[in-house]
Amino acid sequence: MDLKAVTRRVLTIVATATVATYSLCAMADDKIVIGFSQSTLNHPWRIAQTEGNKKYAASHYPDVKLIVTDGQNNATRQTADVESLMAQGVKVLMISPLTQQALTPVVKQAMDHGIKVVTLDRRVNTPVTVHVGPEDLPIGRQAGELIAKKLNGQGAIIEIGGTAGASVSIDRDKGFREAIAKYPGLRIVAFQNCDFLREQSMKFMEDQIQRFKPGEIKAVYAHDDEMALGAIQALEAAGRLNGIIVVGINGANNAIQSVAEGKLTATFIYPFVAPEGIQTAYKVARGEPVPKDIKLQSTLITKDNAAQYIGKGF
């Protein structure tokens, strides 16, 4: 057995033992211990989500001890984070899982040990106490219909995906493909997952600029604004942005500004589940009833309404 496997095994044993005796620990501490396992802090949206929940907890819940971890965009690291939180006796686990399947076993483990689980924005393949977040399938469909309308149902599309295996990436892709499937003249000619990162998207787009001649690319659909803006940077540098439809998701302030300037065609306000995440976790910790699925509303931003949303993103 290698060192990593031994370490994981030790963490699991410690977590199991601690969870089993949690009720005794709780008697000695008046604080409600809530753990927040964040998938990564390498993205502005993730930072906004984390800081929003931390600040709300600090100002509204003096009886809460909130422990935040950073999975550093690594499923193995995030799994270990959750095991560590379990070992610290959390009553509720808030988690935004990096990928759907990889985090399923440890979330199931937490649920099996009586820890309530609140998933934020991304899902796992096992029942949890409650999920809080926007819906990604409808956003993907809206993006597809928007591009289809702008292109009159004809043209080559480049799709830039998020993190492979993340529920948001799966649904944003699925919804988009469902929408454009109704238009035989639309086709996706290139696809790559770029982990929601601008630099990776820019490099991928530079490669596609070399691959396709001017006028061949008609639209770019990116699973988030950072990647959409990276694609725009590459297209602008090559003098190829004019006439290309570019759609992103998340509603970042710089993306909304880009929509207002006519560079980015559209984005979607995608709530970063703060303070809704900690509000829900607190209710769950106190035994208050909550819905199994709390849906947050997204909003389409185009040049027609961008001015009213400037400065209201993150």
Rank of each mutant, 00 (worst) to 15 (best):
L120H: 01
R141L: 08
S96C: 12
V168Y: 09
I301H: 06
Q101G: 12
N42P: 03
M94W: 00
K312H: 15
T16N: 14
A20E: 15
V246K: 03
A143H: 13
L98A: 07
R240M: 12
R9P: 00
L264I: 07
S169G: 15
D30I: 09
A20N: 15
A237F: 13
K283F: 12
G215W: 04
A266N: 02
A15C: 05
P271K: 03
T18P: 05
S169N: 15
V6E: 14
Q257W: 03
P289N: 05
E236A: 13
I301L: 09
V64C: 01
Q72S: 12
T21D: 13
G165Q: 08
G230A: 01
N250H: 04
I95N: 00
A20D: 10
F191P: 00
H223K: 01
E236G: 07
L151A: 09
K55D: 15
I294G: 00
I301D: 00
C25Q: 15
K108D: 14
T7F: 09
Y309W: 15
E261H: 09
K55Y: 13
L3I: 11
D121P: 06
V246T: 09
N242V: 11
A219C: 09
D195Q: 14
A234V: 06
V117Y: 03
M202G: 07
A58V: 05
T7L: 11
L98Y: 13
L137M: 11
S23D: 13
Q208P: 06
Q308P: 03
G161A: 15
I232T: 01
V14S: 12
I32P: 10
D195P: 06
A181C: 10
E276F: 02
A28V: 10
C25K: 15
R211F: 05
N193E: 15
D207Q: 14
L151K: 11
G239L: 11
K54M: 13
V247L: 12
A148T: 00
N242K: 14
I294P: 00
A28P: 05
T265M: 07
K55V: 11
P291W: 10
I188L: 09
D171N: 08
S167A: 10
A179I: 06
H223A: 10
S84M: 06
I269A: 09
A266W: 01
